[in-house]
Amino acid sequence: MPTLLLLFDLVLLATLIVLALATVLSPEPRRAVMLFIAFGLWLALVWARLRAPDIALAEAAIGAGMGGALMLAAARRAAHRDEAAGGDGDKRA
């Protein structure tokens, strides 16, 4: 059981770090937002594993939920403005 728990923690942490890196390094705003939502979910899982359900609740609701929805809208608007300005849209990836 302890070994299994350690393995669980290692997978959880490794994926969290990979997700954070992928989010920060993503060149496309909308992909970054999607990865940010996934990151928020994952971080909530980490808090749950640390026996802190209240913080996990806040992270999932505010960090991933509200923040993600707002950032989706913002990314959409930014891409729209780029396109309206005759730019190359969000095809910079």
Binding site: A48, P53, A60, A61
Partner: peptide
């Protein structure tokens, strides 16, 4: 882990999926 409160986090996850799909 014996923490029943974690199910509330699950409820928020379900809410989150619905909200983000609707926003999308």
């Amino acid at each position: 882990l014996g923490i029943p409160a974690l199910i509330d986090v699950g409820l928020i996850f379900a809410l989150l999926a619905a909200v983000s799909v609707a926003a999308f």
